[in-house]
C-alpha cells in the first residue's frame, strides 16, 4: 500500500434522489466519504444500498442531487456531460461485472479503445495495449475475441483496458460477480498487485466478504448511508 495519505476522493454531504413518477427514492443520503491516494477500498452492502450509485458518482457517470464530489481536488459534480466524458477518459479506469468488452474487437483492440481518446499514435496505442495485456498475463491472447476467452480472461482484458491509460482511480463494480471462485481469486490477486506494486487507487463494489478481505479498507452502506468502517 502506498504511504501517500493525501485524500484523493472527497465526497461531502451527497444526496442522490431518483424520481419515479411522483415518488422520490433517496438512494444516497448525506453521505461523506474520503479515499486516500493508494487505497484499495471495498464498498459493501445489501442490494439497493447505494453502492453502485456511489461508485457512479465518484466515476463521473452520474451527478449528485446535493453535495459535492471532488477527485484530486477537482470538483466534478458541476461538470456538464461533455466535460465529464473527457474527465473520465483522463482519470477513470472502469472494470465491470460483465466485462463489457466489444464483441467485434479482439483483446488487443478492446484494450486500445480508451487510447483512441488520447493523442497517441497508432503504434504507441498498440505498444501501450500490449504492455497492459502483459501486466494482466494475457500477452499471448491479444488476437483472441471475447467469445474465445473464458470469463476470467475476459475480466483480465477488462482490467487491461481500465489501466491502459494509467488512470487516477480504478473503479470496479462487482468485478468477480460473474466468475467462479478460482477465477475470482485470480482477479482479486491481480487487483491487489496493481494496488500494492503500482500504487493504483482502487474502489471496488462487492457483495462478497471474501473479496472485501483483499481490500485495505471496507466501508458498509445501508439504505444510502455509510454504516461503519473496518480500517486495516
Amino acid at each position: 500500500m502506498s504511504n501517500n495519505h493525501e485524500v484523493l476522493v472527497d465526497v461531502q454531504g451527497v444526496d442522490r434522489v431518483f424520481r419515479r413518477g411522483s415518488e422520490e427514492i433517496h438512494v444516497l443520503q448525506k453521505l461523506d466519504l474520503q479515499v486516500r491516494q493508494g487505497e484499495f477500498l471495498a464498498l459493501m452492502g445489501p442490494s439497493g444500498s447505494g453502492k453502485s450509485t456511489l461508485l457512479n458518482l465518484i466515476g463521473g457517470l452520474d451527478r449528485p442531487s446535493n453535495g459535492s464530489v471532488a477527485i484530486g481536488g477537482e470538483r466534478i459534480d458541476g461538470l456538464n456531460d461533455r466535460q465529464l466524458a473527457a474527465w473520465r477518459a483522463r482519470h477513470i479506469g472502469l472494470v465491470f461485472q460483465f466485462y463489457n468488452l466489444l464483441p467485434v474487437l479482439n483483446a488487443q483492440r478492446n484494450v486500445e479503445l480508451p487510447l483512441l481518446l488520447t493523442s497517441l499514435s497508432a503504434t504507441q496505442r498498440r505498444e501501450h495495449a500490449a504492455a497492459a495485456l502483459d501486466i494482466v498475463g494475457l500477452k499471448d491472447r491479444n488476437t483472441s475475441f471475447p467469445t474465445q476467452l473464458s470469463g476470467g480472461e475476459q475480466q483480465r482484458v477488462g482490467i487491461a483496458r481500465a489501466i491502459v491509460t494509467d488512470p487516477t482511480i480504478l473503479l470496479c463494480d462487482e468485478p468477480t460477480g460473474d466468475l467462479d471462485q478460482k477465477s475470482g481469486d485470480e482477479i482479486l490477486s491481480l487487483l491487489q498487485a496493481l494496488n500494492r506494486e503500482q500504487g493504483k487507487t482502487i474502489i471496488m463494489v462487492t457483495h462478497d466478504p471474501h473479496a472485501s478481505h483483499r481490500a485495505s479498507r471496507t466501508v458498509y452502506l445501508n439504505k444510502g448511508r455509510l454504516l461503519a468502517e473496518n480500517p486495516e
Binding site: 461533455r82 466524458a85 483522463r90 472502469l94 479503445l113 481518446l117
Partner: peptide
C-alpha cells in the same frame, strides 16, 4: 450496453 460502455470510457454523444 456497448454504447453505454463507449460513453463510460469517455466517448462523446
Amino acid at each position: 450496453r456497448e454504447i453505454a460502455t463507449l460513453r463510460a470510457l469517455g466517448f462523446g454523444a
